[in-house]
Amino acid sequence: MYSSPYGSIWDSEEITVVGINSSARDSIETNVHHGSIALQDLNIIKEEVGKLDTKDKVKVLLTHHHPKNYTDRTFQDNDFSIMQNADAFLRFATSSEFDVIVHGHKHIPRFDIHSDSLNYPIVALSAGSFSASLKDYHNGVANFFHIIEVEGKCVTNDNILGKVTTWAYFDNNKWISASKDRDFISHEEFFGDIRNRKVLKKELKTDIGSRIASHGRFRWQILLGRKPELKYCNLGLREIVVTELCKEEGWEYLPMKNNDFLVVLEDSPQ
């Protein structure tokens, strides 16, 4: 990690983790600058990864700086979060079919799915900080920890299915579930189902519509019995789609516990 190619590989029976040190060129003598990964270092690491048998393993790529330029909600100073050669880094990730990218740096958690022309979706987690003191520096950002659970693989697309669960720490409340409104990451972020918005909307319109017609109401949990892969549909995407459908179709969305929800006809007596 501290000499070229500034990377390490941890390979075990079920998981392969590759770490790339984007802070390798930092020191007390250098000015603040972007993170960086040299292309030649990346090629060497790629070659090493290529030698491994990672066929049925979960593959995780770790680095420090941001491979993507996120919207900044902290301060207006110049931001050196994004790394040089980020595009090459991300290309390396998709071409080597990593399942998860985890990085840090800004201490503000974010969850996303990254994909490119190779069409391989990667879970991209910008992790919060477990132990740094953030109150004064980061306008009261909490401490976080995340658990990434891989529950299986999509039989069609071979990408991992699972969720990222996040907890936030506040002085008064200690560890509590993260919340999208407050922490920019939900307590549970599911990943794996790759239906896009249009496809999901079309499908749910039929599923919900037919259920309401026959039973007067629709419950998500019942649909999961028929289509279990929908469990891994991202909840944010799901909410957007269902909210839109409710508006268009005159339905009413009723959130329930444990990511469940009900849909009924608006103004129905129930």
């Binding site: 419950r219 329930m256 516990k257 009900l262």
Partner: peptide, 11 residues
């Protein structure tokens, strides 16, 4: 019942 609970909440 969870469904009854959410419907009562709605009302």
């Amino acid at each position: 019942d969870e469904v009854d609970a959410v419907l009562v909440q709605r009302n």
